[in-house]
């Protein structure tokens, strides 16, 4: 069994699945209103921006990531704190980033590991209407699907495979 990246991050009896590039790709393709949440670790920001653009997925920048994105000549759809966006995703009545209805899939990239663990826990318990995928470095047992614990290189390959799968 894959252990959480921060090894004591064991929430309880119900743990999410370890994703594969194929399962992650499939979940994103199936989603009707996905949302991409990009955090402060900035490890795979380029990948996230490209995915958002190519798949037309709205992007929320947490922390001060919007400043970095602006330096790269782009803009996120929304700037919100990590807990703020989690709170919005919890509310069934929220109409989503683009006003098209609450999202049905939240994809996390580069949020601070232990903060993301708490965000995912909140959604697991209080947002049954939404599925979660963590593509941040390190396994997150609170996500429906999360990466295994991968080296930087392997993580890059995983993400590339997801992008490739989505492009097909």
């Amino acid at each position: 069994m894959t252990r959480a990246y921060q090894c004591a991050n064991v929430p309880g009896p119900h743990l999410g699945k370890v994703g594969t590039p194929a399962s992650v790709t499939s979940a994103i393709k199936r989603a009707e209103r996905p949302i991409l949440i990009v955090g402060s670790e900035l490890a795979n920001l380029n990948w996230a921006l490209t995915l958002a653009k190519e798949q037309n997925i709205p992007i929320v920048a947490t922390a001060h990531v919007a400043g970095t994105i602006a330096e790269m000549g782009a803009n996120p759809d929304r700037v919100l704190g990590a807990i703020e966006i989690t709170n919005l995703l919890k509310s069934p009545e929220w109409s989503g980033i683009r006003g098209e209805g609450q999202h049905d899939l939240a994809i996390f990239v580069d949020v601070l590991y232990y903060l993301e663990a708490q965000m995912l826990s909140a959604l697991k318990h209080f947002a049954p209407h939404i599925k979660t995928i963590s593509l941040t470095k390190g396994h997150q047992p609170n996500a429906n699907q999360s990466l295994p614990n991968l080296s930087k290189k392997k993580l890059g390959e995983f993400l590339a495979e997801v992008a490739e799968g989505l492009a097909k």
Binding site: P11, G12, P13, H14, I83, T86, N87, K90, Q118, M119, S121, A122, K124, H125, F126, P128
Partner: peptide
């Protein structure tokens, strides 16, 4: 209050551990 459980269970009495998910 916004809650983000760090543990899905309650382990405070001998009925437990109790699973509080879903």
């Amino acid at each position: 209050p916004f809650y983000a459980p760090i543990c899905d269970m309650c382990c405070l009495c001998t009925y437990g551990k109790c699973d509080l998910t879903e």
